[in-house]
């Protein structure tokens, strides 16, 4: 069974993100540590587990982005993916989720996997859209925010549990299908030293938009980025707990009108 995992490279969660001094649409990338988006690690892990459980198969990692993205693909290869595809084209530098999905869908059409696993959302743009959009473009069923999955013996269907408000919905989807990984699906492995060494020898293939037949333009654009409006300064309520608590409740009712 062949599985494609979509991996996005994003700034580390602990990084201070600042607006670029020269371009109000972009962030200042100097000094940023780049990581694989955390949800995409769950996606990679799940793909590897499916392959290991079946004792055969292939896991292909795909990423769209500039040269630095190779590092994210190396991490995916070090975890155990078999090979990688890098959609590396300046023409896609300002891709929105739809253009990204079009490029990924084109790769997936060439690869013809039985399953595509994405992350729930990329933690830079926080859109949570690409998985569903890839499915729509391919005309495949999709399930977002999955917490569990099982592929049947013949690799014809996948049973997933997707998180919804107030519960979990369990569905059977015929393959091929697209799913997106929610936290709680698994605990991603750390690459072993052997994995890291082995990753250096694995293939990362570069592809361009034209080779994929992707000619679209972004439908959503950043007009500009802004810093958060500062929160009004807060105050620590001093005194004995019993007095502090009384004052807090008074303030919440009378000042903040929050209760």
């Amino acid at each position: 069974m062949k599985i494609v995992v979509a991996v996005k490279q994003v700034p580390d969660t602990a990084t201070q993100v600042k607006i670029s001094g020269s371009d109000p649409k972009a962030i200042d990338t100097a000094g940023i540590t780049w990581i694989v988006s955390p949800y995409d690690e769950f996606a990679v892990e799940e793909a590897l587990r499916i392959k290991e459980k079946r004792g055969q198969g292939e896991v292909v990692a795909v990423s769209l982005g500039p040269d630095r993205v190779k590092e994210a693909l190396r991490s995916a290869l070090a975890m155990g993916c078999d090979r990688a595809i890098h959609v590396n084209d300046p023409a896609l530098a300002n891709a929105d989720t739809l253009l990204t999905a079009q490029a990924l869908a084109a790769v997936i059409k060439q690869e013809q996997p039985a399953l595509v696993i994405c992350g729930r959302q990329a933690i830079d743009d926080d859109m949570g859209a690409v998985a569903a959009q890839v499915a729509e473009i391919l005309g495949w069923p999709a399930a977002s925010w999955i917490m569990e999955e099982a592929v049947d013996a013949e690799a014809k269907t996948i049973r997933i549990g997707r998180q919804v408000e107030g519960g979990l919905e369990v569905f059977d989807l015929p393959l091929p299908a697209v799913v997106s990984a929610q936290k709680g699906l698994n605990e991603p492995r750390y690459p072993t030293l052997k994995g890291i060494m082995g990753a250096k020898k694995k293939e990362i293939k570069d592809v361009k938009a034209a080779e994929l037949g992707v000619t679209g333009t972004p439908q959503l654009a950043v007009k500009n980025l802004e810093a958060l409006p500062p929160r009004p300064p807060g105050r620590v309520i001093p005194g004995e707990v019993k007095d502090a608590v009384k004052e807090l409740v008074r303030a919440l009712r009378e000042e903040a009108k929050a209760i």
């Binding site: 993100v17 830079d124 743009d125 926080d126 333009t217 654009a221 007009k223």
Partner: peptide, 18 residues
Amino acid sequence: VATRPVYAGKLLAKMTWA
């Protein structure tokens, strides 16, 4: 024009549609 949090809410992005 839509305003939405990006980078885990560290910044706000103003977005427009084509």
